[in-house]
Design a binder for these strands. Structure first.
Length: 891
RNA sequence: GGGCGAAUAGCUCAGCCGGUCCAGAGCGCCUGCCUUACACGCAGGAUGUCGGGGGUUCGAAUCCCUCUUCGCCCACCA
């Protein structure tokens, strides 16, 4: 389908009339497809695969808007741009969601069985995955959908097995009984990163443990229920309070078990009572202490965090928190509860189920991280890998320095099943599918567990391109360039990609990590569906348009800073984008409506090219401004300062082009002044440039308008148009200065008009006393502009001081007066001029002081001093003119 | 307990490897305009001890120290 480029344009931009059709047109014309055979320098961005658990929210909107802006920018710059999209199977998250759905039907996954359950999850992700991709389309994502991957598809799955096997063969993957983080709701092990620490106002219970031979010892604990599993007491070896007790025993209350008191240097004598109960089965530190002293490991808590049969009857089967209360109550009853003190401490919770994580001794698979971390650290420290903003790199570094082994097995059904097979005797015999039977034909049993989702995500920069095969895509599009993601997954994902990429491909998967901010509500809470403060992009796009959404977000976000949006006031939140989109639309509408016939080129050797002599001052000014903006915006994009790029183009379009140039040029377009064809040429050329500069941020609107500019054939697309480059020939300081004076003059007259309440329709006269020949020429050349924009009947050159009227002085010292007859109140005018003189006097005095200071003139750079001298001269000039005026008026 | 960041107009924020900032934007506010592109607009305007204090410097929103208030990350003190 080809968007209709001939239909009349309505005065208000209605995004829904253009965006969906245009997106389809882009797809049909292969605008986003990357070509591995083009030979052009590739530019690759790996899309952080959204979880298939739910629909996208504003955070995704922001993240993908940034990526799309970067990829479109590089595509226009001629790179073979590939934005590789995908979705993540999100093991634990997805399984949790589907289990909740099942729970509503009164079922558990065990009712279905593994195979049927997984089948069910596939159904679910088929729906959400499709929805997510459609959402990305609605915001204009120029991803190469032909290469879309899903982390559980056969390709990535093969990569996962290959990676596992290689790490295993290298001795970097091992299985072992370790203290791990256990989620008692999801019933699975978690990695350290998957545990979120929350500061909690808890309690520290001081419990008396009777000594075997009389008296008692007090221990402090935040988890009294674990005392049922105590197998020792530890004190610091140097602690004089307890030194004599080391080697003796206490009788554990409620359980009636004799346990030894041991000395261990890990104990901090200053904390609590200096005596620590040791529960080797349910605490990491305690486990180490227990090992050092040969204390038994007694499991008192089951995987679901209920108390096991290893505890005495009243506690057996109780939930851990019920057991806690009961233990405390019993201690109180027995007079063994010394005291309870408030205690703030960090409690770990599962990032998916939010359950309080329980340390648990468990047999799991681990990746030995130290050897993988070293090359990653080297890459960062050598500067080959950089972060924006930079300080995020320090977090990355610190994490790698303190890295610990990664628990990668999960007791889930949804995910990549661990590629390990066992014989019946429990021997682990193989890690390759083709060896899934023993030589004698006995079938082997595959490990029941699945891998941490992040194991497969960590491979996507190459697994999505066909690795381990040496595909053409892999050869061309790996390694990639920029990764754009949120700071919350630096460790989960970014670090793993870096380490695994270096390990398996020998290359960094990207060289720049751009961390975008987080979308928050006005109370600075992170937006989320569960908190009820989310904004749905699918609600915003139909109302304001994808371009408005994108512009609003990008312009509001300096690198790495958060974006605040009010979900209760979308009109205000998205006003900047909405208003600007409409402005752009109307500027385009105006320009297109005022074109008749072919438009002459303004540069090059083609026939009919506009000669420099044909250009007016405002023509030259706009061209020079445009060139400056091309320079600034290009640099801003290249430096990832997207907010500066967006707002820079915004001000050029709105202020320079629309407010000044279009207004100045109307008489020529309407045939009331000569040079209409030249005006059209300048207008089209600069508007075209502005559209290109804005295209990465506002793809739909810019394409819609650009297609209608003269000389475009049906298949032309701005998405692959050449990015504007600065043109040295466009530099024109004289024109910039001249038109700036005209602008000053117009603004001054408007100010005087408003000050004296001149009716909007009433023209006034103005007399100017130009401070230089250049100023005089500018006012003469732009007389029509001045007359139109300031509603002036005639611009007279002459002595201004003695005239009655509103006075002003421009920065170059040009005096102006607007005679206003009866409207002028001499007293008021004297006051105005007096105040202005006073302001200038102060500036001049301060500046004179500065320049009289020898320290300044001798130490500051000459350029700075010159600049300050110029300022002083300008202020003196202005002051002199104004004072002369006051004198002449008899103030 | 360590480490880091932020505090600039009523609101949301730019600027911050010192002078081009006599401090900017958007939104909001005030005044006047439906001027044949746009009232999602045009023109004009008001509003800031650049968190407090100290220091370095000829010169500081910008660098250093300190305090206050908010965030974030890391951490096995039970």
């Amino acid at each position: 389908m080809t968007p209709d480029t001939t239909a009349p344009l309505p005065p208000q931009y209605v995004p829904a009339d253009h965006e969906p059709a245009l997106y389809r047109w882009w797809l049909d014309h292969g605008c986003f497809a990357a070509d591995a055979t083009s030979g052009r320098a590739p530019y690759v961005i790996m899309m952080p695969p959204p979880n298939v658990t739910a629909h996208l929210h504003m955070g995704h909107g922001l993240n993908n808007a940034v990526q799309d802006a970067l990829i479109r920018f590089e595509r226009m710059r001629g790179r073979e741009a590939l934005w590789l999209p995908g979705t993540d199977h999100a093991g634990i998250a997805t399984q949790t969601v589907v289990e909740r759905l099942l729970a509503k039907e009164g079922k558990t996954r065990h009712d279905l069985g593994r195979e049927a359950f997984v089948e069910r999850v596939w159904e679910f992700v088929g729906q959400t995955g499709a929805t997510i991709l459609r959402q990305l389309e609605t915001i204009g994502a120029s991803a190469d959908w032909s290469r879309t991957y899903f982390t559980l598809d056969p390709g990535p799955a093969r990569a996962v097995r290959e990676a596992f096997v290689r790490l295993h063969e290298k001795g970097l993957i091992y299985r072992g009984l370790r203290m791990i983080n256990w989620d008692p709701v999801a019933l699975t092990a978690l990695s350290d990163e998957e545990v979120e620490m929350h500061e909690t106002e808890g309690k520290l219970w001081h419990l008396r443990y009777p000594l075997e031979h009389g008296g008692h010892l007090v221990v402090a604990t935040t988890r009294p229920e674990t005392m049922l599993g105590d197998t020792g007491i530890a004190v610091h070896p140097e602690d004089d309070r307890y030194r004599h007790l080391v080697g003796t025993r206490v009788r554990l209350p409620l359980v009636d078990r004799l346990i030894p008191i041991v000395a261990d240097a890990a104990i901090d004598p200053a904390f609590g009572t200096g005596a620590v109960k040791v529960t080797p089965a349910h605490d990491a530190t305690d486990h180490e202490i227990g090992q050092r002293h040969g204390l038994p490991v007694l499991e008192v808590m089951a995987p679901d965090a209920t108390m096991t049969d290893a505890v005495p009857m009243p506690f057996r089967g109780l939930d851990r928190f019920t057991a806690r209360e009961k233990v405390v109550a019993e201690f109180a009853e027995l007079g063994l509860l010394e005291k309870v003190v408030p205690h703030k401490h960090a409690v770990g919770r599962s990032y998916r189920s939010n359950a309080v994580v329980e340390p648990r001794l468990s047999e799991q698979w681990f990746v030995r991280m130290r050897p993988l971390a070293e090359p990653a650290l080297e890459a960062y420290r050598s500067g080959r890998l950089r972060f924006i903003p930079e300080r995020r790199g320090e977090e990355f570094e610190r994490w790698l320095v303190n890295i610990r082994d990664w628990c990668i097995s999960r007791q889930l059904w949804w995910g990549h099943r661990i590629p390990v097979w066992y014989a019946d005797d429990g021997r682990h015999v193989a890690s390759r599918e083709d060896l899934a039977t023993l030589p004698d034909g006995t079938p082997l049993r595959q490990d029941e567990d699945v891998l941490d989702t992040w194991f497969s995500s960590g491979l996507v920069p190459f697994s999505a391109l066909g690795w381990p095969d040496r595909t053409p895509d892999l050869a061309v599009f790996h390694p990639g360039h920029v990764l754009v993601t949120g700071p919350d997954i630096i460790f989960f994902w970014v670090a793993r990609m870096v380490m695994l990429g270096l390990e398996f491909t020998g290359e960094l998967p990207f060289t720049t990590v751009y961390l975008n901010g987080i979308v928050r509500d006005p109370k600075h809470r992170k937006m989320s569906k569960s908190a009820g403060n989310g904004i749905d992009p699918l609600e915003v796009v139909p109302r304001f348009g994808a371009d408005a959404l994108r512009y609003t977000m990008i312009s509001a976000m300096a690198a790495g800073t958060d974006v605040i949006l009010d979900p209760n006031d979308l009109d205000t939140s998205f006003a900047p984008g909405r208003n600007f989109a409409n402005k752009l639309w109307n500027a385009g509408r105006f320009i297109l409506a005022n074109l008749d016939g072919p438009v002459r080129p303004i540069a090059g050797r083609a026939a009919g090219v506009v000669r420099r002599e044909e250009l007016t001052v405002h023509d030259r000014w706009l061209i020079a401004r445009c060139d400056a903006v091309v320079r600034e915006v290009g640099e801003s994009y290249a430096k990832f300062r997207l907010n500066e790029a967006a707002t820079g183009a915004y001000h050029f379009l709105w202020s320079d082009l629309a407010d000044w140039y279009i207004e100045a040029v109307k008489p020529r377009l309407y045939g009331e002044a000569p040079g209409g064809d030249v005006a059209r040429a300048v207008l089209v050329r600069c508007f075209d440039t502005a559209l290109r500069l804005l295209h990465p941020v506002m793809p739909f609107l810019t394409e819609t308008l650009w297609k209608r500019l003269p000389g475009r054939d049906a298949d032309a697309t701005i998405s692959r148009a050449r990015w504007p480059e600065p043109d040295p020939r466009a530099t024109d300081d004289a024109a910039l200065r001249a038109f700036a004076l005209v602008q000053e003059l117009v603004t001054a007259v408007r100010g005087i008009r408003a000050e004296y309440g001149v009716a909007p329709g009433q023209a006034v006269a103005v007399t100017v006393a130009p401070a230089s020949a250049a100023a005089e020429a500018a006012f003469r050349d732009e007389a029509l502009t001045i007359r139109r924009l300031a509603k002036v009947s005639a611009v007279a050159v002459g002595e201004a001081a003695h005239q009655e009227g509103g006075h002003a002085v421009l920065t170059d010292g040009t005096a102006i007066v607007v005679p206003l007859g009866d409207l002028i109140d001499r007293e008021k005018e004297c006051l105005r001029l007096g105040a202005e003189c006073e302001r200038l006097r102060q500036l001049v005095a301060a500046q004179e002081g500065k320049l009289a200071n020898e320290q300044f003139t001798s130490r500051a750079p000459a350029a700075v001093v010159d600049k300050e001298r110029e300022k002083l001269a300008s202020w003196r000039e202005q002051l002199g003119v104004l004072e002369a005026n006051r004198g002449a008026l008899g103030c």
